[in-house]
Design a protein around this nucleic acid. Sequence first.
RNA 1: GGCGUCGUAGCCAAGUGGCUAAGGCAGCGGAUUGCAAAUCCGCCAUCGUGGGUUCGACUCCCACCGACGCCUCCA
Length: 520
Amino acid sequence: MKIRFYNSLTNQEEDFVPLEPGKVSMYSCGPTVYDFAHIGNFRSFLFGDLLRRFLELAGNEVHHVMNITDVGHMVEGEADKMMEAANRVKANKKSGRVPEGAIQDPNDPYQIAEYYTQAFLQDARRLGYKVAYEYPQNVPRATDHVEGVDGMIGMIQKLLDRGHAYIAEDGVVYYSVESFPEYGQLSGNSIEKIKSNAGGRVSDENQSRKKHPGDFMLWKPDQNHIMKWDSPWGVGYPGWHIECSVMARKLLGRDVIDIHTGGEDLIFPHHECEIAQSCGTTGQDRFARFWIHARFLFVENEKMSKSLGNFYTARDVFEGKVKVADDKTGSPVEMGKKVHPAVLRFELIKSHYRMNMNFTVKGLIDSAQTIDRMVEFRKSLEEKTDGESADVDLSHPVLDAFALALADDLNISGALGVMLPWIKGDHPDPNLSLAVFKKMNSVLSVAPINEGISGAAEEVESESEAAELEQAQQWANQMDAARKDKDWPTSDAYRDKIHAAGFEVQQTPEGSKIKRRLGV
RNA sequence: GGCGUCGUAGCCAAGUGGCUAAGGCAGCGGAUUGCAAAUCCGCCAUCGUGGGUUCGACUCCCACCGACGCCUCCA
């Protein structure tokens, strides 16, 4: 199968063939753990997951690594991220958003990072993000890779030795972009253009110490920083970009990796700097052979931002905190209905990664509908087959068409255009159909959400959820009794109750059946 | 200003130099139903604008309009 991806490095689609046949090395930029991850983060992460799962479907063994950025980096004119988080945690503890006792000491950045790391992993796992199940071996934390010759300090030293870095008069270690003529290739910049400092966000005072305005920090000596390590250049902390160069090389075990993913905003400066550092260290002309970037997510056609009130974390969505216009007043109110993780996952992966996706309540409703259909389909096949599926490979025409669509720059719409009508069609051989469905679901991972993840816990209903189900089923039984007596008003009353409790009721020859709504 | 991505029905969205422009949602009509839900059947677009190339373009080229991103916080 010919696989093609759009490579940001060359701005064109290219044939993808891993360096080592059948084995793909892939690195994704992960979250900075100073707050709960939002749906925009997950759009980018889940795109990486989809990519990885597709490559696996295509017969590759994928070594996927994603970092956790738990170092607070100073931003000029702004508070350090971890400091910011500390202040927020203190406020949130009062409001109950961060549970009492979750973080003993909000002034300890390691505790804050740990808390948000665990929260992230939990969200990611609920969303079927495969690499999150491989923590910690494939999900390294930046703070674990600062020291040592194969750590950030080692790489910075190597860059100094090789003449790609220098120590400025204020003791800060900078990367010298002029030592790396390819700097700017990824983002379409050139060292000349960067010199003009078009963005104008960096103060003159800071610029004056650098040899070139584009030079970026590798190590900053700072005794007062909230997180600090000893180094040959004094006690301080590393620059933001160096961690990815180090961890990609260290964990993937190679100087040139196949794929590097991230959000489009990371192209410049983050990924540009990673390339400069990695190539500067290894002497190779490439760091990642393919750079694949996901576009931004919008919410109801607007950029997601806290000030617009449309900023949602994954858990906000799970908990039904997405806002909808109130029927009467038109002002935004929380929709109040829980959203199943599979629905959110599907919503975030169902549009092409290189298109801006627009997150909407209507989209969630659509997704819930689609997932529901898939779940029902699978259930009916499993009932017919006792869960026994046949063996199937990509030579099956439906799977072939499905995979072929994805092989074309991850054309998910095309793939769904194969899958959904197929589900609707006839299935004379349920064992075979089940096998086909499972293969498709190993990529989509929505019905159920943990397809192909060994050791992933089955979704367990909590006690209160089980009680709700029990209650709803009792109403359904009473509904049946009323229907038997043709007592329609009573029957309808029970149906309303069932709906209000978040369930669907279906009339079947064996009586009314209860099904939990997926949400929305 | 520079570098990119994109513009297909009410919404999401695939695709092709020429047969009927996928698929999903919503909507409409029908079957079914006590009424609904679910299900099933059917209906529902000429592809941002203006030029050009061509026997023929929505698909190729040019211009314009519009949306969005990046140009040292950001997935």
